[in-house]
Design a protein around this nucleic acid. Sequence first.
DNA 1: CTTGATGCAAAGGGTTTGCAGCATT
DNA 2: AATGCTGCAAACCCTTTGCATCAAG
Lengths: 137, 137
Amino acid sequence: MATLVERLRSRARRLTGPRQAILALLRRQSHPLTVREIHAALADSRCDLATIYRSIGMLQEMDLVKRFDFGDGVARFELVGACGHEHHHHLVCNECGKIVEIEECFPETLETEIARRNGFKGVTHRLEFFGTCPDCQ
Amino acid sequence: MATLVERLRSRARRLTGPRQAILALLRRQSHPLTVREIHAALADSRCDLATIYRSIGMLQEMDLVKRFDFGDGVARFELVGACGHEHHHHLVCNECGKIVEIEECFPETLETEIARRNGFKGVTHRLEFFGTCPDCQ
DNA sequence: CTTGATGCAAAGGGTTTGCAGCATT
DNA sequence: AATGCTGCAAACCCTTTGCATCAAG
């Protein structure tokens, strides 16, 4: 949290009420949240949707928050680097939307090879799994 | 094409001008197209956007077309099973949007293990790579 | 002729932006 | 006091839907 304030200050950004609320919420969340979910969870904070979009955007630029897309047209966001939340992927239930965190990752040597063969630099990947969860089978 | 007509007929669907045009366009495309790109390419066919959305939706239900999401909020579509286009992934340039088809896939044994460990059935994955292409470096 | 498909326009849902007032620094 | 931030409302973009008309079968 201390380094966070510094990071904000170094960019001439202010640590405001809404931003603290959003960060505090994301910190205690283990799954990615949509902007609407954040808004609902912050109902008592009376925080505007636009403010959440702007804050999330700023946090993304600062690499404090990562965006995930599950193909339903709604962006989801997770805090980066909190409680062991490094690079990871998800397993999503097609029926109920349940989300499970997955540690397995695409083989690094294979990714390096793909980048090399095509002459691309700084290659990363988005990877999500979909299926039917035990409760929905 | 013959089997396609049968597939359509079996569902009491009609093979209309717009549908033929969309399929013909997708057949000669090696990269996924957005609805807007399809619309632009079919400018002379005077095909409405709504019609393209409806046709694409139907083709998806029939598993003739597959949808891809590159995280920019726009859906992209590719014909399935045409010209060797089986299950595959993409490498997308973050700068210019160039798309390269990738054959490498997530290891099946690992996916099976993920499904088993979490009790999920019918697990599939979405996987796309992002980086900077040679021209944009 | 019957029923599905199209075009047009309007509505929907997520996200972005302009602007005046407000609050952090 | 200065400037970044907020709320509100309007605008945007992609996508979906209602409805009267048209055309494939």
